[in-house]
Each structure stands twice: as C-alpha cells, then as structure tokens.
Design a protein around this nucleic acid. Structure first.
Lengths: 223, 223
DNA sequence: TCGAAGATTCGACCAAAGTCTAATTCCGTC
DNA sequence: GACGGAATTAGACTTTGGTCGAATCTTCGA
C-alpha cells in the first residue's frame, strides 16, 4: 500500500470542497496524483477506463451515492482500496455505521485543513481514523438484517444501483428510463431484479427497506 | 392545569412498561386516575367516548404512532393537553425534534422510577422536562419544509392517518382495505387525499417524504 | 330542526408498476 | 477465438395504483 504517494480520488459534488480536499491531499503527499469525480457515475467511468487508485475520499451526499448505501456499494466494488467517508453529518450514529460498513475513516466536512491532512496520512498507512471527539464504538450497532441488506446492495449491478438511487428519489419508471436512455420496459426489468435481491415485493417496500439503513434503531424495526 | 390530580393516559404497547409508567404516575399523584391504551386507535376510542385527560404519556413506537409523525398528529388533535414522549431511543436528535414538534417533555425508557416521577411532576406543573444529560437546544433543527410537512400530517383525518401508517409499513391497498374492513376503492380515495395533503404524487414519494422527518439532516436533503 | 361542511365510502375508468419470456451484448475463461 | 454466464435490453401481458365523480354519513352551528 502506498505510504508516500499514489493516485488519490476525490469524489464530491461540491467544487469548492473538492478543491479543499485536493489541497489537503497534496499537502500530505506532494508526490501524489489527485483525480476528481463529482458523481458515482463519473467515478465508475474513471475506474472502467483503467484508472487505479490507492485511496478514495467519498462524499455520501454526492449524486448517485445515496447515503450509506453508496458506501456499501463502493466498498464491495473496490475491496482492496482504502475508502474514506467525507460527510457534512457528524452524527455519532452515522459515523459508527459507516465504519461498520467498512469505511477506513471518517472525515467531517467541518474539519480544519490540518485535521484532514492528519486523517489522510493515518489512513494511507493502513490505520483507521475517526474525528477526535468520537470514541471507537465497541458494540456493533448493526444487526443481522442490516448485514443482509448490505449484502443485497453489494450484489446489485452498476445499472441496478443507479436505478435504485433514482427510485429512492421518488422518480417514475418513465423518468428513470428517459434519464438513462433506455425503454421503460428495461427499467421495469431492473426493478424486478432489485426487488428480488432486496427481498421485497414492490418499490414502496424497497424504499422502506433502504431507509432502515440510515434510521436504524431510531424508530424501531418494522416487523 | 391540574397540579395535584386529574386523569392521566398511558399509551404504550408494552404491558410491562405500561405498568411501570402507571406506578410512576401514581407515586407522583396518588389521587390521579390512570387510563391505558396500547395503540393510537384505542387512545382515540377513549377520547371519542368522552374521556378527558390532563396528561398523555405517549410511546412513539406504539402501533399506529409511526415515529415523530405520531407525535405531530397527536399534538394537533389534543392541543391543550400536555404531551410527554416516552421512547426507547435516546438520540439527542430525536429528542430535540420531539420538543420542536411540541412535546412537553421526553422520558427515555431507560430512566429510573425516581426520574420518571420527577419528570411527570415537572411537566404537570406546566414546565418542560428533558433527560439530565440533554442540554436544551438553542437553534431550531427543523426547517421550513419540516413545519410544512408537520402541518400536512396534522391536517390528516383519523382514517387517513391510519392509512398512511399502513402505507409506511409497505402494505398493499388490498391489504389495508381488508384490515380496515372497507373496499379497495375507498383506500385509493384516501391515498389520493393523503398525496394531496403531503404534496406528493404517489405512495413512494409519500414514504420518502415521511422518512425525511426522522432522518432529517443525517443524510442531507434531497435536491 | 335544518342545513352546510367535512369525512367516509364506493364504482368506473385510465395510468403506472410488475412479471414472464426471450433476444442481444459484454466479459472473462478455457 | 470460441464458449458460458451474467448483464442489459425489450415486448406482451397481468396486477396494482391513482383520479374523478358522486353517494352516504357525521357533526356542528344557525
């Protein structure tokens, strides 16, 4: 694993913040190359074109990454690459869950440049990193069904994950088909496949199942 | 407002915990009458039959109360009655939101009997009450759209709120119709009315809109 | 007591969602 | 370079969802 250099990917849809992250990376590793992506689609294009990365900084609020499901999906696709979650949220709950879903670190967007540099240095050395005020969580927050759901999401194909994301935004099959440039019949076929993998019967239940990821124990489990 | 006595309603689906709450109430106010309900439906039956209460202890995980939406709905229906949220969740976020949505107090289920008694005493005197480790929140957590949504939920009729709850569990119109003993056409009509009030076009968007209540800023707002 | 407004109910009709089958393309392996 | 399996695509068909108009029922105040 690259200790001093390598190619680092910054995936965030906010241009200013992407720039700040890039600077932090370059300060920590002057020799490193930094590439940028402003959506999950762009990120996948880069890797499809053969780009290889030694570290990914991932914003969970970015287009295409829908909360923790984006992390789960990415974690499975790039298993050997350290993955750092960058997020505006500083909820302890979210941070713990991100780590349990396999993030190598968590950098809050409110962090100072120095802290970001420090975090990146730690993580690139194979250590994990958490915000200073956050204690490492001992007892797992996630239950068996959470991991089931994670496995389901990880098993989605790229196109299916894209479709699921648009479903989670409440779009109609017709709209999704138009945006992806395929027929409505195709989207329906993807939907059926997604429902099978998530273990639900229809789109409403799919959305409910997904929301349990982020909400978790707050509102109690649905029987 | 009854300072020393009155009728108090304990609404919780867990029998053991209902008993514990009842004891706490009787210890705080030996003169008081305690009535019990194990679902929102039962609670509404009691008030429909003319019962009047001076304080309601409400569990948000109870059947029929779907998270914070249950609080919003109840708060609007019984505006002059102090409403205390009792919940297994101790997330600061949830507590603050509950208070912003008009709860008069928040009692975590992990609290000791003494603490519960103290909380009930405070609230019955018109004061608010929070768990000891929770600081009163200064800046509002909720945005304008949250209050819009709250107004929408408050404007639902009892039957519509029931239907919305079952929708949020992922049930089909057919199933909801069967459970409520009406025709499927009726449920569809309720759905249309609910969508209008929530400002959405279909059931999937309705579920998404509701989830923003509980999740709030955790995963960021949808475009 | 008599409306008036809202709540609840329902049937008919149209739109959207979901399933099944199957063709085509893509990718890694032998 | 051919083969096999998975992904993507799509058409035909069935089921579910959603809107409209309208009939009862309730409730509350004139």
């Amino acid at each position: 694993m690259a200790l001093h250099t390598g190619t680092i990917l910054v995936a965030d849809d906010h241009p200013l913040f992407r720039m700040a992250l890039k600077q932090a990376v370059e300060q920590a590793f002057p020799e490193s190359k930094v590439k940028e992506a402003e959506s999950v689609d762009q990120l996948e294009k880069l890797t499809d074109q053969g780009s290889e990365f030694d570290l990914i900084l991932l914003d969970l609020n970015m287009p295409g990454a829908h909360g923790l499901s984006g992390l789960i999906y990415m974690r499975d696709r790039y298993q050997n690459i350290p993955l750092v979650v960058v997020s505006a949220s500083e909820e302890a709950n979210v941070i713990y869950k991100a780590m349990e879903f396999g993030a190598n670190g968590f950098i809050p967007k409110s962090a100072s440049m120095d802290v970001m540099v420090e975090a990146i240095e730690h993580i690139s050395q194979g250590e994990s990193w958490l915000p200073p005020n956050i204690m490492p969580q001992q007892n797992p927050l996630l239950g068996e069904q959470d991991h089931d759901l994670a496995r389901s999401i990880a098993s989605l194909t790229p196109q299916q994950f894209r479709v699921l994301g648009m479903l989670a935004e409440g779009q109609l099959n017709k709209q999704i088909a138009y945006e992806l440039g395929v027929s409505e019949a195709t989207i329906k076929a993807h939907m059926t496949a997604i429902f099978r993998k998530l273990g639900v019967r229809n789109r409403t239940q799919a959305v409910i199942r997904l929301q349990n990821l982020d909400v978790g124990s707050i509102a109690g489990q649905v029987h």
